[in-house]
Write a protein that binds this DNA or RNA. Structure first.
Lengths: 209, 209, 209, 209
DNA sequence: CATGAATGAGGATTCATTCAT
DNA sequence: CATGAATGAATCCTCATTCAT
């Protein structure tokens, strides 16, 4: 608990405070229509301070996604490590986990998907792109392993596990994106869980032997 | 064959010329990094001319999506009208159609998803939002009807057809989005069809009786 | 009534049509906020046509004032020529004339005053500036002569007639401008005649022997 | 004497710095031909800075007039408060004050009149319009009171004091406008005081019992 | 003569970023 | 570290003017 440690923790906290504010503002206004001052105001900080924690607007935006990816990766590892009798139950844990993440903060995921279809990705620092690439592929690797076990045990159909995990991830992101965009278009407030549920159910039926 | 008719057609043609240029430039640079002058240059027109056809940059961007939605809607209507012995084959036509659209222009769809992340949607003219809403819901209605027939005929599992069409659309957009982002992250050039294929196969298995 | 004559008259009519439209639009929007297209629309002509009758926006604007000045000059000459027993009655005629002009079209005068305080005047073609200068000074000369007679006949106080006519003109324009600006500020519709009346009355009392 | 106080004063000073520069540039080039960059250069600031103090060009322009109106209002209050034996002497003070303002900066008043021609007035923020309206009517109210006293004391003719003050103001603005426009038309440099003097003299004669 | 689509230079405005305090 | 006023490059957009039809 040295003084240096505390400093570090404080710094980390401030970073999160900014990311939280950024997530909120980016989500409701989009990247282009969000100004650094908007974020600063939301974070109750001055614009200049943001630049003490993030090199520029692009990096701040990308950091949001790194945060989510780290979060997901962490959770995925836990799902994998946890003792579970069979792949099917593991997939269920996976579903539950993804669903929780979505429930807790749908915006968090929207940003992630927005990044993926985005102009930002193309203009990113190589270092950050590498970080994203790694987190992304490591996460996929975990999901892939779960499917591989299932295919081995003749629980899932005979399909390349990598393909299955791609589809799972695509299904997940698609449904989230779709639900969110319906919410925006129809100007609704509440989030709809059942589409997510149905999607998973169909997916599981589709890959079951 | 009046002079008025020709004028109208010329106007429509000019509009398309701009949209085509815009799609190209937006797709390769993203919304923010694209300037109106870039688009004008690509369309071999002057910047001012763009404003004779689109009120501003946002509307030009949104119009791109409307174009895609109109295209999709048109194709969907044709799939529905076409004589097909059973819902399952209709779904296959649907798959083929979506796949074609994706093959011909993956960027076209990426733009559509970008639109749907609130960025633009929230700052749109009410009139244009209504257009988008209508095209979107009409398209969904067609897909829904196909599923409804399948459920009636005991071809698909007993599920609310609306839910099925939501999942189909989510699946489709998710896989496209995911494939594209992998391409950007891994800096690949070619498009991968198999993920799309696998996803559909699983979906169909999942909803089959 | 040759064909050439008719052509000329038609041309003159078209010119007036444009000036009338311009006066209306300039008066309600001001010089800067008025576009050539606004005027064209009001005149039910195309923008290009305006340029067949006026070299540019500045000249169109200035032409409005020339029109008013010509009108006033014409009326002034008539007041002067008309048999009137004494200068006091002549001044009364003058008042009546100015008042009529103001009643018929307050906007016509507003434009004139706006021009006088204006950026346009400084950027005008020498030829047009000369026209304005001449009309202006000739008009003043007539008023001045009326006063000169009055001073000679010991009807008005012993003052330089030129100074008197300047004051008269200043008084007139000031009251008109003031009444108009009150109307705009308080968002009224009707025109107030009494201020004009009172002003004249005081002026006449002020210069009477 | 807090730090907050100093900040506020600095802000006010910067505002004045901009207004001063704006007045100079607007006066010599007119509203249209003046660019925000011109003003910034004159104020030795960057264009962006202007927008930290004024919402846009129109508001900056209108603020100039508010400044003049505040100045006039302040002076008027002083004339009214000052011990003066009778209304006639008060009117003399009034004349002297108006004359001084005009002498010190004839352009300042010209701008005021330009504002009053609907050009800017009609496109103004409601708040600013209210400010202008209030300053304007309060100033008039003071003049009106002076006349009311004079009418009561049988010093001035039996006339509605409000009408008298309207005429006074109209006379003043008219003469100023007229003198200025003669200067521009005839391309003179010096300002003529005598017209102003004569006008006042006649007015006073005209309202004296 | 009349049109009105197209032009493109010009200028207002924004906002990411910096830096003196 | 934090601030927030100032910057000024970048870009959207307007609109007077032209010219092919």
């Amino acid at each position: 608990m040295g003084i240096h440690e505390r400093k570090l923790r404080e710094r980390e906290q401030r970073r999160r405070q900014i990311l939280k504010a950024a997530r909120k503002v980016f989500s409701s206004n989009g990247f282009t229509k969000t100004t650094m001052e908007d974020i600063a105001r939301e974070a109750e900080l001055s614009p200049g301070t943001l630049y003490l924690y993030f090199k520029n607007k692009d990096e701040l935006y990308a950091s949001l996604s790194v945060e989510v990816l780290e979060h997901l990766h962490e959770k995925l590892k836990r799902v994998y490590i946890k003792e579970a009798p069979n792949p099917q139950l593991r997939i269920n844990d996976l579903k539950q986990m993804l669903y929780n993440v979505y429930q807790v903060d749908p915006l968090i995921l929207l940003n992630l998907f927005h990044l993926q279809s985005s102009e930002i990705l193309t203009h990113l620092e190589p270092a950050m792109l590498t970080t994203i690439r790694n987190l992304s592929s490591n996460s996929l690797a975990i999901i892939t392993k779960i499917f591989a076990e299932g295919v081995n045990d003749h629980v899932f159909i005979e399909k390349h596990p990598k393909a299955l995990s791609d589809v799972l991830w695509g299904l997940f992101s698609g449904v989230v994106l779709w639900e969110e965009s319906k919410r925006i278009i129809n100007n609704k407030r509440e989030t709809n869980a059942s589409a997510f549920d149905t999607a998973f159910e169909i997916f599981l039926r589709g890959i079951a032997r």
